[in-house]
Design a protein around this nucleic acid. Structure first.
Length: 234
DNA sequence: TCATTAAATTGTT
DNA sequence: AACAATTTAATGA
C-alpha cells in the first residue's frame, strides 16, 4: 500500500491504536468510536488554553506537546511533556473543571479529541477503561513524586536524565521512539533549569554514552541506563 | 539541482 | 542575557 502523499511515514498512527482503545471490548469501543476527531497543530500552536472548559480528553498521535503555565512576566514553567501515544487532560475532564494549564505543541503535532460525554460514558460503563485510567494516573503520580524528591539533591545530569526518561515513559508515552525531537531550551524548561545547565547535563550524558546529540534531536542509546541514571527503577 | 535566505538551535562570552 | 556560529528548511532561479 502506498503511503498517503501528505504523510511521509507509512505508519500513521490512529487513535484506535492507543492502549486504552485496544483494551476496550468491541461494543464499548463502538459506542465512542464515532465521537473522536483529530486536528493537526503546527509547532508553537496552542492546543488548549488555561481557563477554557475541559470538554475533551486529548491524545498525542504524532508529535509532542507540553503542559505549562505562563507567568505574568512572560516566562513559562513546564510541568510535563507528552509525546506519541500519550493521553492527557483527564484530570479536568473528570472533575468538570476548567483547564488549569496551557497545552502547547512543541512540534508539528496531530492530536485526537474524545468529547467529555464519551469519556464519562466510558468512565461509568467500562472496566477496561477504568483500569487504563488508574494505570495512567498511577504512572503520573509516581513521576511527580520522584520529580519532587530528585529536584533538590541531585546533579543536573541526573535531573536531565529524569526529564528525558519521563518523555520516554512506556506507560505515559507508549509510542515514543528513541529519537527525541526537542531543543535544549524546552528540555531545560521541563527540568526547571536554564538552557545552559540543560546543555551541560546533556553533554555529560552524551560522554557517558547514554545519549547522542544531534541538531534538534536527542537520540537515546541506552534507555535502561538512562532510567537508572535518573534514579528510576528498572 | 543548486544558490540564497530565513528560522531554529546550539555554542560562547 | 546577549551575541555569534551552525544546521535545517524554504524559496526561487
Amino acid at each position: 500500500m502506498p503511503a498517503h502523499p501528505t504523510d511521509p511515514h507509512s505508519g500513521a498512527s490512529s487513535w484506535l491504536q492507543s492502549r486504552w482503545a485496544r483494551a476496550l471490548p468491541r461494543d464499548e469501543l463502538q459506542a465512542v468510536a464515532g465521537d473522536v476527531w483529530e486536528r493537526s497543530f503546527p509547532a508553537g500552536a496552542t492546543v488548549a488554553t488555561k481557563g477554557q472548559a475541559a470538554d475533551h480528553w486529548m491524545g498525542v498521535l504524532e508529535g509532542m506537546v507540553k503542559v505549562d503555565t505562563n507567568r505574568a512576566d512572560g516566562r513559562s514553567t513546564t510541568f510535563i511533556g507528552v509525546s506519541s501515544g500519550g493521553w492527557l487532560g483527564e484530570g479536568a475532564v473528570l472533575k468538570g473543571e476548567r483547564r488549569p494549564y496551557d497545552v502547547v505543541a512543541l512540534q508539528d503535532s496531530r492530536i485526537a479529541f474524545l468529547p467529555r460525554a464519551s469519556f464519562l460514558w466510558l468512565y461509568e460503563h467500562s472496566l477496561a477503561f477504568n483500569h487504563f485510567l488508574i494505570t495512567q494516573l498511577n504512572a503520573r503520580l509516581a513521576q511527580f513524586i520522584v520529580s519532587v524528591e530528585r529536584s533538590r539533591i541531585h546533579t543536573t545530569a541526573e535531573q536531565i536524565a529524569f526529564g528525558l526518561a519521563s518523555l520516554l515513559d512506556p506507560v505515559l508515552n507508549p509510542e515514543a521512539g528513541c529519537r527525541v525531537r526537542i531543543s535544549h531550551e524546552e528540555l531545560g524548561k521541563l527540568c526547571g533549569v536554564s538552557r545552559q545547565v540543560a546543555a551541560k547535563g546533556l553533554h555529560t550524558l552524551a560522554q557517558q554514552g547514554l545519549i547522542r546529540l544531534e541538531y534538534g534531536v536527542i537520540e537515546v542509546r541506552d534507555s535502561t541506563a538512562l532510567r537508572s541514571a535518573a534514579g528510576l527503577a528498572g
